[in-house]
């Protein structure tokens, strides 16, 4: 059984981490990042060609985590696979012992390093969740029996900072109806806005794991505000980063991530820490956030 599912079901506040596979074949250092946080988080997400940039695959990386006793969350996007490949990869994942899948639309190919690639999007994320639910029931999407079936704990994403929020919430409801058992959110910096969002979706009764992205610099914060949908880093946080000496920046990054974690905790069932290569800071974040 998925430990992530077990913990969410028994009401524990969960912590998850994230790694991205290498651009190339040197995977060891990426796995070492996951090893660093192995005992601190319940599961580690593996991104699927994040930002549409070619990398090694999420599935193989999840398998390697699994072999090291680290529970993976297999991120799967609709960008690069049609419905045959999506279902096949889900079956393959289950065969490899992967229990958690996060179903995403995926960033558009034009944003990545192969902008001339054909964007697939045969499915949207709601279709993918539904397909996963159908596979769980022992059938494929066209109703054929499976010879052995998975039992995924499947999650989805939502962007609490989207403006307007209403279509996001409508889609979130559709994801729940399609079988989403938990949600991970876009990075939260505006806690008040996050709280308002949670109040609007409380009735869905689905665990929400808040996304916390580590702030590495004021420039990064401004960049995200300008470029990344659904991210609103308040001016106060940007100022805090600006006023921090370079030598203290990691300390400040930990302090902010820990503070955000503490602040969002009353509203959600867990925190997904996206530390962007600074995984070694996760133990300090957890300690300062006073989460055991």
């Amino acid at each position: 059984m998925s430990s992530l599912k077990e913990k969410l079901n028994n009401g524990s506040f969960v912590l998850t981490g994230e790694i991205g596979p290498p651009k190339g074949t040197d995977i060891e250092k990426h796995l070492e990042k996951a090893e660093l946080i192995k005992d601190k988080v319940v599961a580690v997400n593996v991104t699927d060609l994040q930002s549409a940039i070619l990398r090694a695959g999420s599935l193989a990386t999840c398998h390697l985590l699994q072999q090291r006793g680290i529970e993976p969350v297999y991120q799967l996007t609709c960008r690069d696979r049609n419905r045959l490949a999506l279902q096949s990869d889900l079956l393959s994942a289950w065969i490899l012992g992967i229990k958690n899948v996060l179903c995403l639309t995926g960033d558009h190919t034009s944003l990545g390093d192969h902008p001339e690639a054909k964007p697939v999007f045969d499915f949207d994320s709601v279709h993918l969740l539904k397909a996963s639910s159908i596979l769980n029931s022992g059938k494929d999407l066209t109703g054929h029996d499976l010879d052995g079936s998975p039992n995924f704990f499947q999650g989805a994403v939502v962007s609490p900072g989207a403006d307007p929020i209403e279509p996001q919430i409508i889609k979130m409801k559709k994801k729940v109806a399609a079988g989403a058992k938990f949600f991970q959110t876009q990075a939260v910096f505006d806690v008040e806005q996050f709280g308002e969002f949670v109040n609007k979706v409380n009735g869905l009764q689905v665990p929400i794991i808040a996304g916390i992205v580590i702030l590495k610099s004021a420039g990064m914060a401004s960049y995200m505000n300008e470029k990344v949908a659904g991210i609103n880093v308040p001016d106060g946080l940007i100022k805090e980063m600006k006023n921090t000496e370079k030598s203290d920046i990691k300390k400040k990054a930990v302090e902010i991530a820990a503070r955000l974690t503490r602040q969002v905790k009353p509203f959600c069932q867990g925190v997904h820490l996206m530390t962007l290569g600074w995984e070694e800071l996760i133990p300090d974040i957890i300690e300062q956030a006073e989460i055991s």
């Binding site: 034009s110 999007f121 709601v126 962007s159 989207a162 996001q168 409508i170 949908a229 659904g230």
Partner: peptide
Amino acid sequence: SKMLLNGPCGGAK
């Protein structure tokens, strides 16, 4: 851009 049928992705700003 993604030919989605069930509502927006999270990428609109």
